[in-house]
Design a protein around this nucleic acid. Structure first.
Lengths: 218, 218
DNA sequence: GAAAGGTGTATGGTCTGACCATATTTGGTC
DNA sequence: GACCAAATATGGTCAGACCATACACCTTTC
């Protein structure tokens, strides 16, 4: 086992044993290296791994907030994961989009009321001047839908999908030229959720994404 | 921007520009450091990030296979992500299990034929002597179901969920004492898929996981 | 006493150079 | 041709140094 992996295991074990939680600080790199009898570079590589996994955040300087602080932000890691694996062609855009459809259908079937963020995104989309702006609010609409389902893991995945596909979406809207159909889809989804009609909400989401797929794929 | 982040961006840009794919090699750490005019430690931290994301694998020694080779193994990263975030209590076991239910329902609705791996896991479960052994084959059964749906992203997520929850599952089976009900569920799922009855397959998966949930949660 | 400013210091970030273990390549030897 | 030893390129690790940053602390000033 490489040294930094042993450090990783030690840190993880300490988090569990000491009951550390979000906001708590880890010892400094030099102190950690001394305690574990390893070089500072090995500690740094372990911390880099934890940072990549969205578990710690390093702050320079001095004071209560300096050093490696425990956080929990899996969305960024997921986004990197999707982006790089899409780049290596071991995942297709089709698979990513199908996953999104699955999550949104699941969410639409479970939300009991439309969150304010959905209505806000809806009105903001009306005034969108550019494809970029439209996609920004469109994404906010769909993320709000997922958030309303109350599953933080799915919310994180949805945000990652968003980041991985935003450029495709902007390009698709640009090719499409207009957003009237997409907008009416949005209103249909919103209305169904506000009415508490889960089946209609699922159907509306499915129809909306099917329409969008035609323009995103290829 | 930190130096290693710039290195990261450069490497990613190079992968895209040169059309590198799985199996291709990156330059050595020293050579990369020289090309980018940075220290070797910065290159190493960047490579550590890529390794964490399941995109490169480093081999020591000399020869065609030595050095940083491009791979694509997102499952390990996802497993680490879930395990650490479960440890920090920003995700609950309930949310993870609901995600699994969603994926398995989605998969059950789409598979057209049961893969051989499902039948194998089914017969292996009959002879399982310990909870550990039973869970091993149970997992193989469910992973095979997801694999049959043909979405590599979902397969990777399913494998990550498996790794994150295997200890919970073993404990649940131990408490339960017997696996008769779970086994009959498995046969029902398998039969439904072989018969091509998607609705029945989804219903069987839902009932099976609902039963399992009672013993895993709390 | 309070405000302002300067100094000290602990932190992460980076670089350099060295050494080790490993695994292949190379070249010599029988 | 087969075998063995040396050279070499690779990642892995360590030690030490220096930098930029941001807070802590003390001094000065009013």
């Amino acid at each position: 086992m490489r040294t930094f992996e042993a450090v990783l295991a030690q840190i993880e074990q300490r988090i569990a044993a000491d009951g550390l939680t979000v906001g708590d600080r880890l010892p400094g790199e030099r102190q950690l290296a001394g305690q574990l009898q390893v070089g500072r570079s090995s500690v740094r590589e372990a911390l880099r791994v934890l940072e990549t996994l969205g578990v710690v955040s390093s702050q320079v300087g001095r004071g209560p907030d300096a050093g490696a602080v425990l956080i929990s932000r899996p969305a960024g890691t997921l986004a990197d994961l999707l982006r790089l694996n899409l780049g290596l062609a071991t995942m297709s855009a089709r698979e990513v989009l199908d996953t999104r459809l699955m999550i949104e259908r699941w969410s639409a079937a479970r939300v009991t009321s439309a969150p304010p963020a959905m209505a806000e995104a809806l009105t903001a989309m009306d005034g969108a001047a550019s494809p970029e702006e439209f996609v920004t609010h469109d994404i906010a609409f769909h993320v709000a839908l997922t958030d309303a389902a109350g599953n933080r893991l799915l919310s994180a995945v949805m945000r990652a999908l968003r980041d991985a596909l935003v450029s495709n979406a902007v390009e698709a809207v640009r090719r499409l030229g207009h957003t009237d159909d997409l907008q009416s889809d949005h209103r249909r989804i919103h209305t169904a959720i506000e009415a508490g009609d889960a089946d209609e909400a699922v159907e509306a989401v499915t129809a909306h994404l099917a329409r969008a797929y035609e323009h995103v794929l290829h």
